[in-house]
Amino acid sequence: MTDSPILRLGSRALSAPVPKGRGVIGLDVPEVDRWLKGGLRRDGLHEFYAPSGSPPGPAMALALLAGMRNCGQGRSLMWLRARGGRRKDGPHAPGLAELGIDPAALLLLELADPADLLVAGVESLRHGGAGAVVLELRGRCRALDLTASRRLALAAERSGTMALIVRGDARPVPSAAHTRWQVSAAPSRALPANAPGHPVFDLQLLRQRGGAEGLHVQLEWNREQAVFRTPIYGDPPAVPAGRAEDRRARRAA
């Protein structure tokens, strides 16, 4: 796994040039963008599944990072989720900022149940004022059937707002999504003193409308350059200059 980050790519995909399109969001890695014929559609519906039994953090992060790319010029990113009873679980704004997602651009909508969430999702997508709308759903969600996802996809296509669905604890089901991914965490490149490094995602393309599935790739997110890249495992990177000396000193100790 470590020596070949692009695990399965057809030879057909490697030779063709990366198509350039204004309506897509690239994932920075040429092989991936070629496979996706440019990238994720800006006006599309994209689903990110966390594998059953594993935490939904990476799927959320990837959906938000993709959504943020459609949120230039002060457009907001709306995160819709169902409130889980009396627990106040939720996005942690300082953590989002550390991932490179500006919390100032984020609007959180907490709804009572998945049915309300889908209604609010369609409404927000139709309006077209937000850059992207993230719908976080947990478990098997009967309300999100083929009709409901088709409605979301149509609303996204008409307004140009990106629709992103994050599913935790759920099996992939047929839907009208343009792409469907399974996102889990992959081992990060260790920092000095074996500290966890920059986030690495393990992505499997389960479905692509009008294209081939089966892409399996690992991407590392670099916050400073705001790019995805294939992780290069090996020696820990050189310690960069800057503040936070004490933290690095502790890592080295």
């Binding site: 939904p56 953090g57 959320m60 992060a61 938000l64 627990r87 106040k88 679980d89 939720g90 996005p91 942690h92 704004a93 300082p94 953590g95 989002l96 900022a97 550390e98 991932l99 490179g100 997602i101 500006d102 919390p103 100032a104 990060s188 920092l191 500290a195 966890p196 490094g197 920059h198 986030p199 916050r223 400073e224 960069p240 800057g242 503040r243 936070a244 933290r247």
Partner: peptide, 19 residues
């Protein structure tokens, strides 16, 4: 929001459990 420390990985989680 304050800008994160350059070069560091995220030191805070993006999703918080409360409690």
């Amino acid at each position: 929001w304050p800008r994160p420390e350059p070069g560091e990985p995220p030191l805070r989680p993006l999703f918080l459990y409360d409690p």
